[in-house]
Amino acid sequence: MSAEINLTLKVWRQPGPSAEGSFSTYEAGGISTDASFLEMLDIVNERLIESGEDPIVFESDCREGVCGTCGLMINGRAHGPQKGTATCQLHMRSFSDGDHITIEPWRATSFPVLRDLAVDRRAMDAIVAAGGYISVNTGAAPDANLTPVPKEAADTAFDAAACIGCGACVAACPNSAAQLFAAAKVQHLNLLPQGQPQRWARTEAMVETMEAFFGSCTNHGECEEACPKEIPIDFIAWTNRDYIKAKVKNRKLAD
């Protein structure tokens, strides 16, 4: 079961947003396979601090795969080798003794590196601010059971709502497109009856904000594979459809 392995890490170190970065190599010996990937980095950092070196900056918070704070490019894969698993839930039993592991930050022009493995993901919040909400002021809501929602619609909306906003879809995309994130956010609301009044305005605004920051989808499907919540790219297709409809409807509404 539990065993100890020795690893060689090649980690991206970058002192600040505008500084040049480069790889540094660290030997990580005696790592238990029961450790999570981030705990392995914790151990490396403890050793670095002991030897007087600046610890590696990486971000994490809940460490149970739901807050979306963590995210590393591990051997060229967003969140590492295990499907449907965020970096914090990846455990060292996915690796073998003697492995070389390359660790890089998410890379996209709109995810500038802040330091080492930490990046700025505010562009994703900008997409949500553009229309990722239902405009209902506090207190104005009708009784929750006034609007029945077919279970199928609720379930599909939920699949989209499961997005944790980690940015792995952007990181994994060869175009640095944020289509899966934006589509999940759009479709979560577009699929629900409550989301209908703003459906077309929301779709247009969110898609166009996304396009300001991220690349264009060429349907590789890498995002779906990288997504720790396994959100399918079907949502992207539906958003593409909604977007063109939105362009037609919004014009009519504007007239």
Binding site: Y133, I134, A144
Partner: peptide, 17 residues
């Protein structure tokens, strides 16, 4: 009520409630 109106996808029964 507030959360449902915001689009929070609470679990539903087959009748939609």
């Amino acid at each position: 009520d507030q959360a449902t109106a915001q689009g929070v996808p609470f679990a539903r029964e087959y009748g939609g409630l």
